[in-house]
Design a protein around this nucleic acid. Structure first.
Lengths: 117, 117
DNA sequence: TAATTCGGTAACTTTTGGGTACTTTTGTAA
DNA sequence: TTACAAAAGTACCCAAAAGTTACCGAATTA
């Protein structure tokens, strides 16, 4: 996730990939996008993605925050409360992400058939 | 890339991600899509993606072939000749991929600023 | 008196990614 | 005749990333 090659600094594809092309980022974006209020707390996200460990979720959120796609709001309470939501940049990405998901649904069979697993 | 969880078998996001959410797949798809004939040989692809090693390119192409996004045509010659092109499924994905790239170009600055690297 | 909640982190193991060198067969150049 | 180049990869090894498990600290809940 840390590429310093000249290619990476100027290529939009490489840039996009390095920001949310990992295993969990899109699921976070999707969860926030489709939630009622657009806001989810850490453990709410966990319940949306039960196969993602705490560590990976926290790492993913940190990346998304650094990429300015997700906003992190901390309430200094006990027990702690942290609310995650999409930034405007994050929101601007969602139509494309939803298109990608729609493609995935439509072409699920063509792509799954005998390939992996 | 080999996920057997129930989530992965039914979730289109996870499915999409596992097919071409890696570092090089989208660059291959893009290269094929934007090439004049829609056909590229192995070493032509290499020259399009100079920061991708032979091994990773060959691995990426194998994945894309198994996912039925890329077609591989071998000519039994010496030296060997192998031509890669998009399948119909692969072609159907390109509008979305190009939209993603367009987003990347437009929001490059917002996303790069101080985040990664 | 536990147990649970919440949002993580530290330490550790496993899996994946990535680089370098090498292969094979033929044609070409020295 | 020897040597090299081309093509499309593979084998081997190490580094990096992903993933697992245990744990934290204060406050409510049972």
């Amino acid at each position: 996730m840390a590429d310093i090659t000249a290619e990476y600094l100027t290529c939009p594809i490489r840039n996009v990939i390095s920001r949310f092309g990992d295993k969990w980022s899109m699921l976070v974006l999707y969860s926030l996008h489709t939630s009622e209020t657009g806001i989810l707390r850490f453990n709410e996200l966990r319940r949306h993605m039960t196969d993602c460990s705490q560590k990976m979720l926290s790492q993913t959120l940190k990346n998304l925050e650094q990429s300015h796609l997700v906003h992190r709001k901390v309430y200094p309470e006990v027990p702690p409360r942290v609310e995650y939501s999409l930034t405007d940049t994050g929101k601007s990405l969602m139509p494309t992400v939803m298109a990608l998901i729609a493609w995935g649904k439509e072409h699920f069979n063509e792509v799954v058939t005998d390939g992996g697993y």
